[in-house]
Design a protein around this nucleic acid. Structure first.
Lengths: 135, 135
DNA sequence: TTAATTGTAATGTTTTTTATTACAATTAAA
DNA sequence: TTTAATTGTAATAAAAAACATTACAATTAA
Protein backbone atom coordinates (compact mmCIF):
# COMPACT_ATOMS: atom_id res chain seq x y z
CA UNK A 1 0.00 0.00 0.00
CA UNK A 2 1.07 3.50 -0.65
CA UNK A 3 -1.43 5.65 1.15
CA UNK A 4 -1.54 7.53 4.41
CA UNK A 5 -4.31 5.56 6.10
CA UNK A 6 -2.13 3.95 8.77
CA UNK A 7 -0.42 7.25 9.56
CA UNK A 8 -3.77 9.02 9.65
CA UNK A 9 -5.37 6.47 11.94
CA UNK A 10 -2.43 6.46 14.30
CA UNK A 11 -2.53 10.24 14.38
CA UNK A 12 -6.25 10.30 15.19
CA UNK A 13 -5.88 7.73 17.93
CA UNK A 14 -2.87 9.45 19.42
CA UNK A 15 -4.83 12.67 19.75
CA UNK A 16 -7.71 10.81 21.36
CA UNK A 17 -5.30 9.04 23.70
CA UNK A 18 -3.90 12.35 24.80
CA UNK A 19 -7.35 13.59 25.85
CA UNK A 20 -9.22 10.41 26.78
CA UNK A 21 -12.11 12.28 28.40
CA UNK A 22 -12.86 14.77 25.63
CA UNK A 23 -14.90 14.50 22.47
CA UNK A 24 -12.60 15.68 19.71
CA UNK A 25 -14.23 16.91 16.51
CA UNK A 26 -13.15 15.87 13.04
CA UNK A 27 -12.47 19.52 12.34
CA UNK A 28 -10.01 19.73 15.23
CA UNK A 29 -8.32 16.46 14.35
CA UNK A 30 -8.08 17.46 10.70
CA UNK A 31 -6.40 20.67 11.80
CA UNK A 32 -3.68 18.70 13.54
CA UNK A 33 -3.07 16.37 10.61
CA UNK A 34 -3.71 19.14 8.13
CA UNK A 35 -6.02 17.16 5.90
CA UNK A 36 -9.69 17.47 5.00
CA UNK A 37 -12.16 16.77 7.82
CA UNK A 38 -14.11 14.42 5.59
CA UNK A 39 -11.09 12.15 5.33
CA UNK A 40 -10.92 12.10 9.10
CA UNK A 41 -14.61 11.31 9.42
CA UNK A 42 -14.29 8.44 6.97
CA UNK A 43 -11.32 7.02 8.83
CA UNK A 44 -13.14 7.44 12.12
CA UNK A 45 -15.97 5.29 10.83
CA UNK A 46 -13.56 2.39 10.42
CA UNK A 47 -12.01 2.90 13.85
CA UNK A 48 -15.45 3.10 15.36
CA UNK A 49 -16.65 0.03 13.48
CA UNK A 50 -13.73 -1.90 14.94
CA UNK A 51 -14.70 -0.81 18.43
CA UNK A 52 -11.61 1.22 19.14
CA UNK A 53 -13.48 4.49 19.51
CA UNK A 54 -16.98 5.83 19.91
CA UNK A 55 -18.51 8.86 18.26
CA UNK A 56 -21.21 11.33 19.20
CA UNK A 57 -23.23 13.29 16.69
CA UNK A 58 -24.55 16.82 17.07
CA UNK A 59 -23.28 19.86 18.87
CA UNK A 60 -20.20 19.22 21.00
CA UNK A 61 -19.99 15.81 19.41
CA UNK A 62 -16.85 14.11 18.25
CA UNK A 63 -14.88 10.99 18.96
CA UNK A 64 -13.13 9.45 21.94
CA UNK A 65 -11.37 6.22 22.82
CA UNK A 66 -13.45 3.25 23.81
CA UNK A 67 -10.71 1.61 25.86
CA UNK A 68 -7.46 2.62 27.51
CA UNK A 69 -4.64 3.34 25.09
CA UNK A 70 -2.62 0.66 26.85
CA UNK A 71 -5.06 -1.92 25.51
CA UNK A 72 -5.04 -0.75 21.91
CA UNK A 73 -2.33 -2.35 19.79
CA UNK A 74 -0.80 -0.99 16.63
CA UNK A 75 -1.54 -4.30 14.95
CA UNK A 76 -5.26 -3.60 15.33
CA UNK A 77 -4.84 -0.31 13.55
CA UNK A 78 -2.99 -2.02 10.75
CA UNK A 79 -5.82 -4.49 10.32
CA UNK A 80 -8.42 -1.76 10.31
CA UNK A 81 -6.79 0.07 7.44
CA UNK A 82 -6.76 -3.19 5.50
CA UNK A 83 -3.06 -3.27 5.05
CA UNK A 84 -1.82 -6.40 3.45
CA UNK A 85 0.65 -7.25 0.74
CA UNK A 86 3.17 -4.99 2.37
CA UNK A 87 5.68 -6.03 -0.25
CA UNK A 88 3.56 -4.52 -2.97
CA UNK A 89 1.18 -5.76 -5.60
CA UNK A 90 1.37 -8.77 -7.80
CA UNK A 91 1.24 -8.75 -11.55
CA UNK A 92 -2.13 -10.23 -12.29
CA UNK A 93 -2.42 -11.66 -15.84
CA UNK A 94 0.86 -13.57 -15.67
CA UNK A 95 1.17 -16.08 -18.49
CA UNK A 96 -0.66 -19.31 -17.57
CA UNK A 97 1.33 -21.24 -20.15
CA UNK A 98 4.66 -20.38 -18.58
CA UNK A 99 6.08 -22.62 -15.87
CA UNK A 100 6.98 -19.62 -13.75
CA UNK A 101 4.15 -17.31 -14.81
CA UNK A 102 1.52 -19.88 -13.99
CA UNK A 103 2.66 -20.39 -10.41
CA UNK A 104 4.43 -17.27 -9.29
CA UNK A 105 1.43 -15.58 -7.74
CA UNK A 106 0.80 -18.49 -5.40
CA UNK A 107 4.44 -18.37 -4.33
CA UNK A 108 4.40 -14.61 -3.92
CA UNK A 109 1.14 -14.85 -2.02
CA UNK A 110 2.73 -17.20 0.44
CA UNK A 111 5.76 -14.94 0.82
CA UNK A 112 3.61 -11.85 1.19
CA UNK A 113 1.36 -13.46 3.78
CA UNK A 114 4.31 -14.59 5.90
CA UNK A 115 5.76 -11.08 5.72
CA UNK A 116 2.49 -9.43 6.67
CA UNK A 117 2.18 -11.78 9.62
CA UNK A 118 5.67 -10.91 10.80
CA UNK A 119 4.79 -7.24 10.85
CA UNK A 120 1.51 -7.84 12.59
CA UNK A 121 3.24 -9.83 15.29
CA UNK A 122 5.69 -7.03 15.80
CA UNK A 123 3.01 -4.35 15.95
CA UNK A 124 1.02 -6.58 18.27
CA UNK A 125 3.63 -5.90 20.93
CA UNK A 126 3.31 -2.14 20.71
CA UNK A 127 0.37 -0.36 22.29
CA UNK A 128 -1.01 3.06 21.53
CA UNK A 129 0.08 4.08 25.03
CA UNK A 130 3.64 2.99 24.23
CA UNK A 131 3.50 5.11 21.12
CA UNK A 132 2.13 8.16 22.92
CA UNK A 133 4.74 7.80 25.65
CA UNK A 134 7.44 8.51 23.10
CA UNK A 135 6.21 12.10 22.72
CA UNK B 1 4.43 1.07 -1.68
CA UNK B 2 1.66 0.05 -3.94
CA UNK B 3 3.37 -0.93 -7.12
CA UNK B 4 4.46 -4.18 -8.69
CA UNK B 5 8.20 -3.57 -8.77
CA UNK B 6 9.12 -6.21 -6.17
CA UNK B 7 6.88 -8.79 -7.83
CA UNK B 8 8.23 -7.89 -11.25
CA UNK B 9 11.87 -8.12 -10.16
CA UNK B 10 11.33 -11.42 -8.41
CA UNK B 11 9.60 -12.73 -11.52
CA UNK B 12 12.46 -11.65 -13.78
CA UNK B 13 15.09 -13.17 -11.51
CA UNK B 14 13.15 -16.39 -11.11
CA UNK B 15 13.05 -16.84 -14.86
CA UNK B 16 16.78 -16.15 -15.09
CA UNK B 17 17.43 -18.57 -12.24
CA UNK B 18 15.55 -21.26 -14.10
CA UNK B 19 17.81 -20.93 -17.13
CA UNK B 20 21.11 -19.69 -15.70
CA UNK B 21 23.05 -20.31 -18.92
CA UNK B 22 20.71 -18.55 -21.35
CA UNK B 23 20.33 -14.93 -22.33
CA UNK B 24 16.63 -14.18 -21.90
CA UNK B 25 15.23 -11.25 -23.84
CA UNK B 26 13.02 -8.57 -22.35
CA UNK B 27 10.37 -9.57 -24.87
CA UNK B 28 10.37 -13.15 -23.61
CA UNK B 29 10.35 -12.11 -19.95
CA UNK B 30 7.57 -9.59 -20.59
CA UNK B 31 5.55 -12.38 -22.17
CA UNK B 32 5.76 -14.41 -18.99
CA UNK B 33 4.79 -11.51 -16.73
CA UNK B 34 2.39 -10.15 -19.32
CA UNK B 35 3.56 -6.57 -19.09
CA UNK B 36 5.27 -4.21 -21.50
CA UNK B 37 8.86 -5.10 -22.45
CA UNK B 38 9.99 -1.56 -21.70
CA UNK B 39 8.98 -2.00 -18.09
CA UNK B 40 11.09 -5.13 -17.96
CA UNK B 41 14.06 -3.39 -19.53
CA UNK B 42 13.82 -0.56 -17.02
CA UNK B 43 13.68 -2.97 -14.11
CA UNK B 44 16.56 -4.93 -15.56
CA UNK B 45 18.68 -1.81 -15.51
CA UNK B 46 18.27 -1.62 -11.74
CA UNK B 47 19.02 -5.31 -11.26
CA UNK B 48 22.04 -4.98 -13.46
CA UNK B 49 23.21 -1.82 -11.70
CA UNK B 50 23.09 -3.71 -8.43
CA UNK B 51 25.24 -6.46 -9.89
CA UNK B 52 22.66 -9.20 -9.69
CA UNK B 53 22.51 -9.75 -13.42
CA UNK B 54 24.38 -8.89 -16.59
CA UNK B 55 22.95 -7.87 -19.93
CA UNK B 56 24.06 -8.23 -23.54
CA UNK B 57 22.95 -5.92 -26.29
CA UNK B 58 22.29 -6.81 -29.90
CA UNK B 59 21.02 -9.91 -31.61
CA UNK B 60 20.60 -12.90 -29.28
CA UNK B 61 21.20 -10.52 -26.41
CA UNK B 62 19.30 -10.45 -23.16
CA UNK B 63 19.95 -10.89 -19.48
CA UNK B 64 21.32 -13.61 -17.22
CA UNK B 65 22.24 -14.02 -13.58
CA UNK B 66 25.61 -12.82 -12.43
CA UNK B 67 25.82 -15.21 -9.49
CA UNK B 68 24.19 -18.44 -8.38
CA UNK B 69 20.59 -18.05 -7.28
CA UNK B 70 21.58 -19.51 -3.94
CA UNK B 71 23.66 -16.39 -3.30
CA UNK B 72 20.96 -13.87 -4.20
CA UNK B 73 18.74 -12.89 -1.29
CA UNK B 74 15.24 -11.51 -1.47
CA UNK B 75 16.33 -8.64 0.76
CA UNK B 76 18.65 -7.46 -2.00
CA UNK B 77 15.74 -7.32 -4.39
CA UNK B 78 13.72 -5.33 -1.89
CA UNK B 79 16.51 -2.82 -1.59
CA UNK B 80 16.88 -2.51 -5.33
CA UNK B 81 13.23 -1.56 -5.79
CA UNK B 82 13.70 1.12 -3.14
CA UNK B 83 11.04 -0.21 -0.89
CA UNK B 84 10.78 1.59 2.39
CA UNK B 85 7.99 2.86 4.57
CA UNK B 86 6.25 -0.45 4.20
CA UNK B 87 3.54 0.77 6.55
CA UNK B 88 2.58 3.47 4.10
CA UNK B 89 3.17 7.16 3.77
CA UNK B 90 3.15 9.88 6.34
CA UNK B 91 1.01 12.96 6.25
CA UNK B 92 3.46 15.69 5.51
CA UNK B 93 2.21 19.17 6.53
CA UNK B 94 1.08 18.11 9.98
CA UNK B 95 0.39 21.08 12.23
CA UNK B 96 3.66 22.34 13.76
CA UNK B 97 1.74 24.11 16.52
CA UNK B 98 0.08 20.94 17.74
CA UNK B 99 1.85 18.84 20.39
CA UNK B 100 1.10 15.67 18.45
CA UNK B 101 1.21 17.10 14.95
CA UNK B 102 4.64 18.60 15.48
CA UNK B 103 6.26 15.33 16.53
CA UNK B 104 4.31 12.51 15.02
CA UNK B 105 6.38 12.14 11.89
CA UNK B 106 9.55 11.56 13.88
CA UNK B 107 7.76 8.89 15.88
CA UNK B 108 6.26 7.29 12.80
CA UNK B 109 9.62 7.43 11.08
CA UNK B 110 11.17 5.47 13.88
CA UNK B 111 8.35 2.93 13.82
CA UNK B 112 8.50 2.63 10.04
CA UNK B 113 12.26 2.16 10.01
CA UNK B 114 12.13 -0.58 12.62
CA UNK B 115 9.41 -2.33 10.64
CA UNK B 116 11.31 -2.07 7.37
CA UNK B 117 14.37 -3.52 9.07
CA UNK B 118 12.37 -6.44 10.39
CA UNK B 119 11.20 -7.28 6.89
CA UNK B 120 14.66 -6.94 5.44
CA UNK B 121 16.08 -9.28 8.06
CA UNK B 122 13.42 -11.82 7.24
CA UNK B 123 13.98 -11.60 3.51
CA UNK B 124 17.71 -11.78 4.11
CA UNK B 125 17.23 -15.39 5.11
CA UNK B 126 15.51 -16.36 1.88
CA UNK B 127 17.48 -16.87 -1.31
CA UNK B 128 16.27 -16.78 -4.87
CA UNK B 129 17.11 -20.47 -5.07
CA UNK B 130 14.85 -21.14 -2.07
CA UNK B 131 12.10 -19.27 -3.85
CA UNK B 132 12.57 -21.14 -7.12
CA UNK B 133 12.64 -24.47 -5.29
CA UNK B 134 9.06 -23.92 -4.25
CA UNK B 135 7.89 -24.25 -7.86
C1' DT C 1 -34.63 27.73 17.89
C1' DT C 2 -29.95 27.93 16.80
C1' DA C 3 -25.38 26.31 16.17
C1' DA C 4 -22.27 22.59 15.81
C1' DT C 5 -21.42 18.21 14.54
C1' DT C 6 -21.43 13.44 12.27
C1' DG C 7 -22.46 10.52 8.33
C1' DT C 8 -22.62 10.18 3.63
C1' DA C 9 -22.81 10.92 -1.32
C1' DA C 10 -21.19 12.86 -5.34
C1' DT C 11 -17.73 14.88 -7.87
C1' DG C 12 -13.25 16.82 -8.87
C1' DT C 13 -8.22 17.09 -8.67
C1' DT C 14 -3.73 15.44 -8.06
C1' DT C 15 -0.36 11.99 -7.83
C1' DT C 16 1.35 7.58 -8.87
C1' DT C 17 1.81 3.78 -11.71
C1' DT C 18 1.83 1.46 -15.93
C1' DA C 19 1.69 1.31 -20.97
C1' DT C 20 3.00 2.70 -25.47
C1' DT C 21 5.67 4.46 -29.28
C1' DA C 22 9.84 5.46 -31.29
C1' DC C 23 14.49 5.06 -32.42
C1' DA C 24 19.69 5.15 -31.97
C1' DA C 25 23.30 1.98 -30.78
C1' DT C 26 24.90 -2.54 -30.63
C1' DT C 27 25.68 -7.31 -31.73
C1' DA C 28 25.45 -11.86 -34.07
C1' DA C 29 24.95 -14.27 -37.95
C1' DA C 30 23.80 -14.99 -42.78
C1' DT D 1 28.53 -6.24 -45.62
C1' DT D 2 23.93 -6.53 -44.78
C1' DT D 3 20.13 -7.89 -42.09
C1' DA D 4 17.62 -8.93 -38.04
C1' DA D 5 17.24 -8.87 -33.18
C1' DT D 6 18.09 -6.73 -29.16
C1' DT D 7 19.15 -3.25 -25.35
C1' DG D 8 18.96 1.45 -23.61
C1' DT D 9 16.52 5.49 -23.38
C1' DA D 10 13.36 9.34 -23.97
C1' DA D 11 9.01 11.19 -24.50
C1' DT D 12 4.31 10.89 -24.07
C1' DA D 13 -0.17 8.86 -23.01
C1' DA D 14 -3.37 6.29 -20.39
C1' DA D 15 -5.09 4.18 -16.36
C1' DA D 16 -5.48 3.65 -11.57
C1' DA D 17 -5.16 5.13 -6.94
C1' DA D 18 -5.31 8.48 -3.51
C1' DC D 19 -6.88 12.61 -1.69
C1' DA D 20 -9.73 16.91 -1.62
C1' DT D 21 -13.87 19.44 -1.87
C1' DT D 22 -18.67 20.63 -1.67
C1' DA D 23 -23.06 19.83 -0.07
C1' DC D 24 -26.55 18.58 2.93
C1' DA D 25 -29.71 15.62 5.82
C1' DA D 26 -29.86 13.99 10.48
C1' DT D 27 -28.70 14.63 15.05
C1' DT D 28 -27.66 16.73 19.42
C1' DA D 29 -26.77 20.24 23.08
C1' DA D 30 -27.56 24.48 24.83
Amino acid sequence: MNNTRFATSVHILTLLALKPEEWLSSEFIAGSININPVIVRKEIIFLSGAGLIQTKKGKDGGAKLNRPASLIYLSEILEIVHYSDMLGRKNLNTNPQCFIGSQINERLDSLFKRTDLLIKESLGKQSLADFLNQF
